[in-house]
């Protein structure tokens, strides 16, 4: 058991070193950008996983969260001449503000009503950014974003920013993994499973939902902040509803509620367009079909292939098992359960 764990840690360390070395060695900016974009998406999906994956509260406002995280810091850099490094704490603060200010009223709502509120929030953010042209730059957005300056170390090339992103992403993956596999991850999941029972255990559900939502907002804002540095410009057309849906898709693709799943999902869905480039105008059709197949046959995502218990429930294996079962029990009436 312990040996297996050590092997895992060694593999992860190798992956980490590999990811750091990759942008340094591979001078192809296109590859570096693809990696950096993947890492940004990983961070955001990890956040979304807390509120939607674990706690089961459908959040369709990721684009709005990301936009606020990106704009708040960059506007302060541009208008107040703030040091670029401070955009990261500003993004975290923004995440906390969103978590409480939006979470407090909206998490009293359930199901579709919550989804609608988060869509509304996201759209309001986008419209404000679009129309408050004097302050946010309107549709032209924020241009010429300066390179991130780490106390004198200027990340002025894509590969430098990518290396820094690998480190940040690793820290956040580790933190997310710890939270998911702790008492917090457990109660988040419990809220998804049965909210009345959680309350009966003396647990403040509303407070926990806000915590989960704040975590999502913080991760989303950090992701947005780096997205700005990566693109070197921001404008409101980047933060549409499509983007929010895309993040949900990544989560579903990889495996709802799981950190490795989130990482795999974000990576797969970010890089898929690059691999499916040869399909040209058929891309969306093929992408749609792949998504549908996943929803039907692997509802718990790619990661469920590696989890014994979930695998038995996954659509494809269920179908196969039922077939097998039918052949075996042919003619035997199905016994009714106790309930």
């Amino acid at each position: 058991m312990k040996e297996k764990k050590n092997v895992k840690i060694a593999l992860l360390a190798a992956l980490f070193v590999g990811l750091i070395v990759f942008p340094i060695v591979d001078k192809n900016t296109y590859h570096q950008l693809a990696l950096a974009q993947t890492l940004v998406n990983v961070i955001i999906v990890l956040g979304l996983n807390f509120i939607t994956g674990l706690t089961g509260q459908m959040n369709l406002g990721t684009a709005g969260i990301m936009a606020l995280g990106a704009y708040s810091g960059q506007l302060m850099v541009q208008k107040l001449g703030m040091a670029t490094i401070l955009t990261i704490p500003v993004a975290i603060l923004m995440g906390v503000i969103i978590g409480y200010a939006l979470g407090y009223p909206s998490l009293r709502l359930k199901g579709v009503y919550l989804s609608l509120t988060t869509i509304g929030f996201s759209e309001i953010v986008r419209l404000v950014i679009t129309n408050w042209a004097d302050f946010t730059g309107g549709t032209t957005g924020v241009q010429n974003i300066p390179a991130l300056n780490l106390f004198g170390l200027k990340l002025d090339a894509t590969w430098k920013l990518t290396v820094f992103l690998v480190i940040i992403c690793a820290v956040l993956v580790f933190t997310a993994y710890r939270i998911v596999n702790s008492k917090y991850g457990r109660v988040f999941k419990a809220i998804r499973d049965n909210i009345e029972a959680v309350e009966a255990c003396g647990i403040d559900v509303a407070g926990l939902k806000i915590k989960a939502f704040t975590l999502a907002a913080i991760f989303g804002c950090i992701g947005g902040c780096f997205y700005g540095f990566l693109m070197t410009y921001l404008n409101p057309t980047q933060f549409t509803q499509d983007l929010s849906a895309n993040y949900l898709l990544m989560m579903m693709f990889g495996g709802i509620g799981s950190v490795p799943g989130s990482v795999i999902g974000a990576t797969a869905v970010t890089l898929l367009p690059e691999f499916l480039r040869f399909t040209k105008e058929y891309y969306w059709l093929i992408f749609g079909i792949i998504t549908l197949l996943f929803a039907i046959f692997l509802p718990y995502g790619f990661i469920s292939l590696f989890q014994k218990e979930k695998r038995e429930e996954a659509g494809i294996f269920k179908i196969l098992n039922d077939r097998k079962g039918k052949r075996k029990n042919a003619g035997v009436p199905k016994s009714g359960g106790m309930r």
Binding site: A190, N194, A200
Partner: peptide
């Protein structure tokens, strides 16, 4: 308390 119809955390 316990519930009339079980309320457990079924994924765990």
């Amino acid at each position: 308390r316990t519930f009339q119809n079980l309320k457990l955390f079924n994924s765990m």
